[in-house]
Simulated assay, not measured.
Amino acid sequence: MVKQSGQARLPSRPAGVPADERHETANLLHSAAVRLLRVARTQDAGMDLDGPRASLLSVVVFAGPQPITRLAAIEQVSPPAITKLVAALEADGLAVRERSATDRRVVLVTATAAGKRLLERGRAARVRAVADVLAGASARDLATLRRAAQIIAARL
């Protein structure tokens, strides 16, 4: 992170984006979020999963059992690509495919107990990495960041 006068230097607003407070804030949040996720992602090596498999496992752990087509849409990949990722998670014992109890034509992907434990360990490591970034922040700044996170989460 490049610092200038004690402040993190973030990219200026991209061309073609309106010069209003909402877009300026969006630009700053986007840049900070990308950098923060890079820091957090450094901890993923401990899970021994590549990014696509870790992302898919996160979806089935936190969103619950999902059909292949829904997973492909969430992860923004093709059904054949998601099928390969599911097969890799299955081979590692982290997920299973099961028929839906309500519609036997639908196959749901579910995280195994081992998959849930692995993801929770990975998430804990990411949270610790983000907490390290926040070391030294004032109570007021931490409260502001918590409120900002709540506002963003409510809008997603």
Rank of each mutant, 00 (worst) to 15 (best):
Ala91Cys: 01
Asn27Ser: 13
Glu24Pro: 01
Val127Met: 07
Gly6Ile: 11
Ser58Met: 04
Thr42Asp: 08
Arg128Thr: 12
Val107Leu: 13
Ala73Tyr: 00
Ala114Glu: 14
Gln150Val: 05
Ala95Lys: 09
Val96His: 13
Gly136Trp: 03
Thr102Pro: 02
Ala63Phe: 12
Ile152His: 11
Ser12Asp: 14
Gly16Val: 02
Asp92Lys: 15
Gln66Gly: 00
Leu145Ala: 08
Ala63Gln: 08
Ala139Lys: 10
Glu90His: 09
Ala125Gln: 11
Ala88Tyr: 07
Ala54Tyr: 07
Arg146Glu: 14
Arg126Gln: 15
Arg140Thr: 14
Pro14Tyr: 03
Val107Trp: 14
Ala139Pro: 03
Leu29Met: 15
Glu21Ile: 10
Lys84Pro: 04
Gln66Leu: 13
Ser78Glu: 02
His30Asn: 14
Ala114Tyr: 05
Ala54Cys: 02
Leu28Gln: 14
Glu21Trp: 04
Ser138Pro: 11
Met47Val: 05
Asp141Arg: 13
Val39Ile: 15
Ala114Ile: 02
Leu89Gly: 10
Ala148Trp: 10
Pro65Ser: 13
Val106Pro: 03
Ala91Asn: 03
Val39Arg: 12
Arg41Gln: 06
Leu10Gly: 08
Val106His: 03
Glu90Leu: 02
Ala143Lys: 09
Thr144Met: 04
Lys116Asn: 08
Ala113Gly: 08
Arg117Asn: 10
Gly64His: 05
Glu120Arg: 08
Ala87Trp: 05
Ala154Phe: 01
Val60Trp: 01
Arg117Pro: 00
Thr42Trp: 01
Ala19Pro: 08
Gln66Phe: 01
Arg128Pro: 03
Ser138Val: 06
Thr83Arg: 15
Arg155Lys: 11
Ala95Ile: 05
Ala88Val: 03
Glu120Lys: 09
His30Asp: 07
Ala8Arg: 09
Val86Ile: 14
Phe62Met: 08
Asp132Ala: 09
Val60Pro: 09
Leu142Arg: 13
Ala149Ser: 10
Glu98Trp: 07
Thr110Trp: 04
Arg121Val: 09
Gln76Ala: 09
Ala19Tyr: 01
Ile151His: 08
Leu37Gln: 12
Thr110Val: 05
Ala153Ile: 03
Ala63Tyr: 06
Gln43Ser: 12
Ala154Tyr: 02
Ala113Met: 11
Lys116Gln: 15
His23Thr: 14
Val61Lys: 02
Ser78Cys: 00
Arg9Cys: 11
Thr69Ala: 15
Asp132Met: 07
Asp141Ala: 12
Ser31Arg: 02
Leu145Ile: 15
Ile74Gln: 01
Ala45Ile: 12
Pro67Asp: 15
Leu108Ala: 01
Ala95Phe: 04
Ile152Pro: 00
Ile151Asn: 12
Val86Thr: 10
Gly51Arg: 13
Ala111His: 07
Arg38Ser: 08
Ile74Ser: 00
Ala111Tyr: 06
Ala149Met: 11
Gly136Glu: 03
Asn27Lys: 01
Glu24Gly: 12
Ser31Asn: 14
Ile74Tyr: 01
Arg104Trp: 10
Arg9Glu: 14
Gln150Thr: 12
Ser5Leu: 14
Arg155Phe: 00
Asp92Leu: 15
Leu134Met: 11
Ala95Asn: 11
Val133Ile: 13
Ala54Ile: 02
Gly136Asp: 02
Lys84Phe: 12
Ala113Leu: 13
Asp103Asn: 15
Ser31Pro: 02
Ala72Gln: 01
